[in-house]
Write a protein that binds this DNA or RNA. Structure first.
Lengths: 210, 210
DNA sequence: GGGGAGATGTGAATAATATCACATACTTAG
DNA sequence: CTAAGTATGTGATATTATTCACATCTCCCC
């Protein structure tokens, strides 16, 4: 599926295109031009065509893209035509809220494990039926339940240690909500979600104009 | 403070440098070289020096950067040496968790208003003392409490309408957690936080190597 | 079935971003 | 006071990413 060095930015945009296309599908739109899609996503039309061109030809000249097909093709490109199992580590405010959040399941991501260091929480059942395990059991449980991606929602202090354990358990993908830069071996891919950094960008723009 | 066209990526990195530097301060490190900081942040040392060079000279040749000073200078650059008032819109799982999350206050962001469309929730008091207002009151309350940044944590369907109201109320910065691309006038700066997009990137990496 | 309208796919041009490499300046030791 | 050792700041270079512009293909209508 992957033919050349693909810019990371392209991958991110493909996700965004897909989201927008899925929206359009629900409004019964069947075909769209790169120009209209570009406007809706806030990018340049040529950008969309280039991004897709890395992976093949998906449109029809003179017509545009059949949305249903394109969504499926983007899913193939991103590896989303299969289920992905998630483990949540840290069930404080944020972790609990995320695990209840409907967007994961909507996009094919399933929580198959949940961990916390607080023995008070261990054994409790979450709304989705999962029972919280102690972080000590992380390695075993992760392997047993075939977790693919670990989500870190612990305090910053615990994040690195959790990351180490996840790597030990054979995890190669981590989504990190802790506000710290975690260090992992090259085999493991980390994506950070840090909203205070986003707020800093907003503060900068508000302070010094766009 | 702003001298030239500054790359957005530079602004984001400055936030990251600042976070790391603040960590180091707590460990009583006083001075750091661009090389060590770079390693810790996962970037190139020259990158750090270039990023800072947009705004002035902050280091000492042959020595490095005095961390305490540099943190303050980055705060000046980003406009963080002042309080910023936030309004949360949407107090479902995610919104409630965020408003309880300690990281905002730690970095100088204060919630001064909270809104929900559910009349059941209106009037309730949050852990931080705030009382939930109905979204109908958004414009008035936002102006009265001098809100600078609106945070959207509503379902995707409501996000655009909330954004419109925020703009009407004079808000120029929005942090959007709803998984949808919201449209706003140019005067308003939007940052999106969409973790399923991050998960998609991870899925891609796991599927097709790094 | 031929011609016009419209939208893709893509090489070339442009713009933006990151890295290198070294001159410059500061500190310390002798 | 001088020389050695370091680490910054920055012009030059390399790399990467975006946009343009147009040839190519499809559809539709006459």
């Amino acid at each position: 599926m992957k033919f050349a060095k693909i810019p990371m930015a392209t991958i991110v945009r493909l996700s965004i295109y897909m989201r927008t296309l899925q929206e359009l599908l629900e409004e019964d739109v069947e075909v769209i031009s790169s120009e209209r899609l570009a406007k809706q996503c806030g990018v340049n039309p040529a950008q969309i065509r280039k991004d897709l061109a890395y992976f093949g030809e998906f449109g029809v000249r003179g017509v545009g893209y059949r949305i249903n097909d394109l969504v499926n093709q983007i899913k193939d490109i991103l590896g989303l035509n299969r289920p992905w199992n998630l483990a949540m580590v840290g069930l404080g405010n944020l972790g609990s809220a995320l695990i209840r959040h409907g967007n994961f399941i909507k996009h094919g991501y399933v929580f198959t494990a949940a961990f916390d260091a607080d023995v008070q929480k261990v054994g409790k059942r979450l709304p989705n039926g999962l029972i919280i395990n102690h972080v000590n059991e992380l390695e075993d449980v992760v392997k047993e339940r075939e977790v693919h991606v670990g989500i870190i929602a612990t305090p910053a202090n615990d994040a690195q240690s959790v990351a180490n354990q996840l790597v030990l358990a054979g995890i190669n993908g981590i989504l990190n909500f802790a506000p710290i830069q975690i260090q992992v071996p090259d085999c493991c891919h980390v994506e950070n979600v840090d909203f205070t950094i986003k707020l800093d960008s907003i503060a900068y723009h508000l302070s010094f104009g766009s």
